[in-house]
């Protein structure tokens, strides 16, 4: 059964107050087009989670869609900081749970396994742990089998995981190439999954190399076929990040006013096609094409 839907229909699966696990990592494989659509729809009260945040989180927080953030880090790498994320955390304008990357991955893993928590040795003795204990999402306990102190991190079950894939079939089997950071655990923990794919291929092609499938069709609620839906972030073996646009975004996110201008120009007044035209159109996109030997 086909899971292919237009972008708007996929975005409509995300409701006010939902917990959305974001699939990007810094400047790579962010679900930008979907996030733009959520901003245009004025979704409110989201909890968002990801190990390493990228523009997708910054856009949602800057646009006022987010109430709670669960994360370990995030930036625009050398291009700069996630200004809207960092300012919201500094001013405590949103609630946040800040933990180590492995702790967050293990929280997804517990959710994925149907377990209430996972033990971990990260964060012991650090300033990361006390706020998590106070928030009721971590506890320090002793190993019941006679070992030493452990941190128990509470399961995380997102309502929706969103993930950008290079390739999918219409049934919603999605193939991801390159490293997968916390995608495996987030997808397996979530109640539903939205896949945005650069390319849709025949089911036979997926079944020819099933070991590359990250999301099997029975986990996928909706599949959107949308080339360049991760721009300006990189999609390994497809296209490079857009350094010009990342510089422009890094500057815009330094203040709410400049961010609002950016969102007016590139998000609120656009759809995906006019966004791609606004960032430089086909000539720009052609310049980002990945070299098949290098992967970028």
């Amino acid at each position: 059964m086909t899971k292919l839907v237009p972008l708007g229909e996929a975005a409509a699966l995300i409701h006010d107050g939902d917990h959305v696990a974001l699939g990007g990592f810094s400047i790579t494989r962010n679900t930008i087009a979907l996030v733009h659509e959520l901003v245009r729809r004025k979704v409110r009260g989201l909890t968002i989670s990801a190990c390493v945040l990228g523009i997708e989180a910054d856009l949602l927080i800057g646009a006022g869609c987010v109430e709670r953030l669960v994360y370990s880090g995030g930036s625009l790498d050398r291009f700069g900081q996630l200004g809207r994320v960092n300012e919201a955390v500094e001013r405590k304008a949103i609630a946040f749970e800040y933990m180590s990357g492995l702790a967050l991955t293990f929280r997804y893993a517990a959710g994925a396994l149907g377990l209430p928590y996972m033990p971990i040795r990260s964060m012991l003795g650090s300033d990361l742990l006390p706020p998590l204990v106070a928030a009721g999402v971590a506890r320090e306990e002793r190993d019941p089998f006679g070992g030493g102190p452990l941190v128990l991190v509470r399961a995380l079950v997102p309502d929706v995981a969103v993930v950008h894939a290079q390739v999918a079939d219409a049934d919603g089997n999605a193939r991801v190439l390159g490293p997968r950071w916390d995608n495996d655990e987030a997808v397996a923990a979530a109640r539903s999954v939205i896949v945005i794919a650069e390319e849709v291929v025949d089911a036979e092609e997926i079944r020819r190399l099933p070991e590359l499938t990250l999301v099997p069709s029975f986990r996928t609620s909706a599949l959107v076929h949308l080339p360049y839906a991760a721009h300006p972030t990189a999609v390994y073996r497809r296209y490079d990040y857009d350094a010009d646009h990342l510089r422009l975004y890094a500057e815009a996110t330094r203040s709410q006013r400049a961010f609002d201008d950016y969102v007016d120009r590139y998000v609120r007044s656009t759809d995906h096609a006019s966004y791609l035209a606004a960032i430089g159109g086909e000539a720009k996109l052609a310049s980002l094409a990945a070299d098949s030997r290098l992967g970028y």
């Binding site: 190990c51 390493v52 880090g73 930036s75 990357g101």
Partner: peptide, 8 residues
């Protein structure tokens, strides 16, 4: 941005 995996 945060420590990411550096605490781990």
């Amino acid at each position: 941005g945060g420590g990411g995996g550096s605490n781990d």
